[in-house]
Structures are given as C-alpha cells and as structure tokens.
Simulated assay, not measured.
Amino acid sequence: MSDRQQINETFRIPLSVLDVSPIVEGGSVAESLGNTLDLARHAEKWGYNRYWLAEHHNAPSIASSATSIVIGHVAAGTSTIRVGSGGIMLPNHAPLVIAEQFGTLESLFPGRIDLGLGRAPGTDGLTAAALRGSRRSNGHDFPEQLAELRAFLDPSRAEVGMPVRAIPGEGLNIPIWLLGSSDFSAMLAAELGLPFAFAGHFSPNFTIPAMNLYRSNFKPSEVLDKPYGMVAVNIVAADTDEEAGYLATSMQQLFLSFIRNTRGPLPAPVRNMDQLWSEQEKAALQQQLGSSIVGGPETVRGKLKRYMEATQADEIMVAAHIFDHQARLRSYEIVAGL
C-alpha cells in the first residue's frame, strides 16, 4: 500500500504542506531555501498532495518573501506534487504582475501550480507601504483586484474589452484559492464558488465558524459544484510525546516574539518555557496556538482525527515550525505514515 493510500485509509482526505522556508538561529537564507526543496522532495515521496509557500515580508524567520520565485525553485526540483502560494498577498501587487508570474509558472510546470490569494499585507504597516508604493492598496478593494486578476487569466470575465493582456497567463487554467483567517474571504469564496483555505494554524477560534459560513453560503460555479475547504494546522510530531513537546518550544518562542514585537530567526528549542514567558503571555499563546497538534505518532493520530471531524475539512495543510531540519523531516514523515 502506498503512503497516499495509507493516509486515505486512515483519514480519507489529502494532506499537504505549508512552508515559509524558516530561517533558524545561526542559519542562512540559502540554507533555508535548500531545506525547503529537500522537504518538498520528501513530501512528494511521502504522498503529500500539494506544497505551498507563504508570502511574508520584513520577517527575520522567513525566507519565502519572493514567493513566486521560491515556488519555481520547488517546482523545478520536484516532479509530481502540486506547488503554490499559501498565499500571495494580492494587495501588495498589481494583478497583472501576479497573472504574468503564475502564467509563467503554469507554462513551465503545467498542471502543477496553485494560486492561493490573501488580502492581508503579510507584514507590518511600514513594510506594506514600502511594498505598495503609490498604489496605497489597503485590502478593502480585494474583490476588485481579484476580479481584475481573473479577467487577465480569462478575458471573457471582463465587463469591457481588455486593452492589456497577461502574456503568459491569458487562457491558462490556474486554480485560484481564497485564503483567510476570518469570515471575509470565507464569504467571498462562497459567493464566487472558489475553494477556500483557512489559517487555522494562527486563528484557531475562527476556524469552525469560517468553515461553516463558507459551506452554508457556497454557490456552485464553473470551478466547483460543491464547496472545498482546506484548513492549515500546526503539527509537531516526534517519536515520543516528550520529544515533540521539546521541539514545539521553537514555535512557542517564535509566536512569543510576535507578541513582544521582538522578532528574530526561529529559536532553538528549550526544556522549560516557564523561564521565558509570563503567565499572561502563556495564556495568550495557548489561545493563539490552541489548535496545534503536538506529540508522538499515536497522540498525533488521535488529535488529528478529532480535528478533521471537528472542522469537516476536505484537506489538511500541515505547518511545522521546527528548528532542526532532520527533526522537521521526521515530523512530516510521521504525519504521512499515520
């Protein structure tokens, strides 16, 4: 039985990977991008469905800011796994540029490219202003930007003739996903009949309401005849619960740095987080990371099964902030083999 069949026998839905090419303390961007390709090759071998990279900026722990380029890097080094964005933050870009970039990727790697779109900046306000320049987009015009992008890919969608064409891009079938961490994109994806991916890895309290909202308001389209929802979740798996708990402290420290606005590279794990956080910070992290699944194989199997049942997701996207690359590989290998 193949790895993919084992996953389907246990959970009945596909598993995928969400990556930000983490930069670790003492590491380099080049090493991070090399590790991303190595993980993608293993994920392909283990039967994961897709491999998505996320756009973030001005983040010392993230090397995937030039997301389209990293997607090309991963797609060129693999052969079958779908590769895409989780996501491209559309307000940071002119829709024509994204149509051309992903048209190029789809032309190079036909049938393997996904275009996941978000409306958040993926960064702080000053960096967003530097990215967007004179356009001053703030995300409120995301539906209009999305319509423009879709019209570049398929001019028949345009209300008037398209004087500018996306070449490459025009006429290509590039699956578009809407990403969200609240209800806005859930409703928009439902209205447009598009697949929807929810950021449950950092917005756990809104996961089930957003997924329910998406399903209950979904309108069939030429893209989908029924809703298709994917949920991202943090999973840190190891051979024992104790080891997984130790590895997960890197993720906890990273999110703690977000709270304190002291961001740096992904920290090495520690044995005792109580020496690092206050009770208030601990409670805040437990709220933000409340859906995270941490443990040995049997613990992860049980928690993941309950998570799938609770969210009714059609697909699970696994995020893993793990300091040691070999331990990160082992985590994804364990999840694939459940």
Rank of each mutant, 00 (worst) to 15 (best):
M211F: 14
F206D: 10
L90M: 05
G139W: 10
R135T: 11
Q287G: 12
S2Y: 10
R50N: 10
E279W: 07
N8M: 15
I69H: 08
L304F: 14
P14Y: 12
I235T: 09
I176E: 07
G133S: 11
Y51L: 10
T127P: 02
L96T: 09
G169V: 00
L304Q: 04
Q145N: 03
A232L: 06
R136E: 14
Q326R: 11
F196Y: 11
A197C: 09
A319R: 04
I235Q: 10
H201K: 05
G295K: 08
L192Y: 01
G264L: 04
L304R: 07
V20A: 07
F102E: 00
V294N: 01
G116N: 01
I7F: 08
F196L: 03
I98S: 03
G264Y: 13
N212K: 12
H93L: 02
L105F: 05
R132T: 14
L105V: 10
G133Y: 02
G72Y: 14
F202R: 03
A238W: 13
T240I: 08
V24R: 15
I208A: 13
V223E: 12
M230W: 03
A232P: 00
Q326H: 11
G337S: 15
P14D: 14
A189I: 02
D154F: 06
S156M: 08
A75K: 07
S134P: 00
K305Q: 12
I174H: 01
A248V: 01
E170G: 09
Q312C: 05
S216G: 05
D114S: 12
P195R: 08
L194E: 02
G118N: 03
E55I: 07
L117V: 00
A147N: 09
F218A: 09
L96N: 04
L15A: 09
G290Q: 13
L39R: 04
T36Q: 13
W52V: 00
R306E: 12
L18V: 10
P297H: 14
A94M: 06
A189R: 00
P195V: 06
W177T: 02
V300C: 14
N138C: 03
E315L: 09
R41D: 04
R157I: 09
L39N: 04
Q145C: 11
N138T: 08
M89F: 09
S85D: 05
L247N: 11
I23W: 02
Q287E: 15
P209Y: 13
M211W: 05
W46Y: 14
N217T: 09
W52F: 13
Q252C: 03
N272Y: 07
G161Y: 12
R4A: 15
G295P: 05
S331C: 13
F11D: 01
E100H: 11
E44F: 10
M1V: 14
E243P: 01
